[in-house]
């Protein structure tokens, strides 16, 4: 039997905890993997994973309403029916506010409104270290980031099937909303990267609730673990209470920033303490994923 494709998502709730630095290092350490940057709002992985672009595919999200100035008689019905306040005087659709519901087009008595395809981003398929690396460029202020994340993951999955990759590493966005949900649903395991700060702790609790809501197995890694012993203990307590294993602690290490400035992953750039702990963490993650296959 063909082994199933495993998907590891790296998320955090809070931004800036070190998701991308860890995910990019994993991409470097894994022998055979596809890596996907699902933080489509602000994708940073391409800055530390040198890559060659193979294909750029336009992504069409929702359609947008366009009012034909020739056919419009100025009755203003569209303004009344639009719930997104996307139609401005006298009568032009503001594209960033239009959610593509098409209610205005349906209600316009003069059929003066067309729903037009709208490119809201680009899916980029590239190669990094001779292996697939996928990310997206989303247009400024676009909606539908969840849909773009799903599109990226679909593409990654089909490449995995065609080219026999059995691991997909996903770098997720911050938060707990639409794009995060799209990044973690259907994954094998979620690694939550947190930090021992007040907001790190609060945000950890919310992302833990989210992974439990969707019943996805998860574990925690404490980054910058040595900045506060007291806060670190609070994280351990939350994890114990929720039965989530803490599988790694990474000390604060300025090499992480230096690696970023050099455009490299931490594990390539440095042999310091953070680099060593990320390598150990990767070994633990691998063992854990193998145990899931055995089951």
């Amino acid at each position: 039997m063909k082994p199933s494709i495993q998907q590891l998502a790296i998320v955090s709730g809070k931004g800036g905890t070190g998701k991308t630095s860890i995910a990019a290092s994993f991409a470097k350490l894994a022998n055979q993997r596809i890596v996907v940057d699902c933080d489509v709002d602000a994708s940073n992985m391409p800055l530390v994973l040198p890559h060659t672009i193979i294909q750029e595919i336009p992504f069409f999200g929702e359609k947008k309403a366009v009012i034909s100035q020739d056919r419009c008689r100025g009755c203003g019905d569209c303004v009344i029916y639009c719930r997104f306040n996307a139609i401005k005087d006298f009568y032009v659709v503001e594209p960033v506010l239009c959610e593509g519901c098409a209610v205005c087009a349906m209600m316009c008595p003069y059929e003066a409104i067309d729903m037009v395809e709208h490119q809201s981003g680009t899916v980029v398929i590239s190669q990094s270290d001779g292996q697939p690396f996928l990310y997206a460029n989303m247009g400024i202020g676009e909606g539908n980031s969840g849909k773009l994340v799903s599109e990226l993951r679909e593409k990654a999955k089909s490449i995995a099937e065609e080219e026999n990759y059995n691991l997909i590493i996903i770098d997720g966005p911050p938060g707990i909303g639409c794009p995060v949900i799209a990044s973690i649903t259907g994954t094998t395991h979620v690694l939550i990267v947190t930090e021992p700060t007040i907001s790190g702790i609060h945000d950890l609790e919310r992302i833990v609730q989210l992974t439990q809501h969707f019943r996805i197995p998860s574990s925690v890694c404490i980054n910058k673990s040595d900045i506060s012993a007291e806060n670190r203990q609070l994280i351990m307590d939350i994890c114990n209470k929720n039965n989530i294993p803490v599988i790694g602690t990474i000390p604060y290490d300025e090499d992480v920033i230096r690696a970023q400035i050099a455009g490299k992953t931490v594990v390539e750039y440095s042999e310091g303490s953070a680099s060593q702990e990320i390598t150990k963490l990767w070994q633990t993650v691998q063992t854990m994923l193998q145990a899931t296959i055995a089951k």
Partner: peptide, 10 residues
């Protein structure tokens, strides 16, 4: 504001 550059930020 939230992080990112998409509709919630708008």
């Amino acid at each position: 504001a939230p992080p990112g550059s998409s509709c919630p930020v708008i």
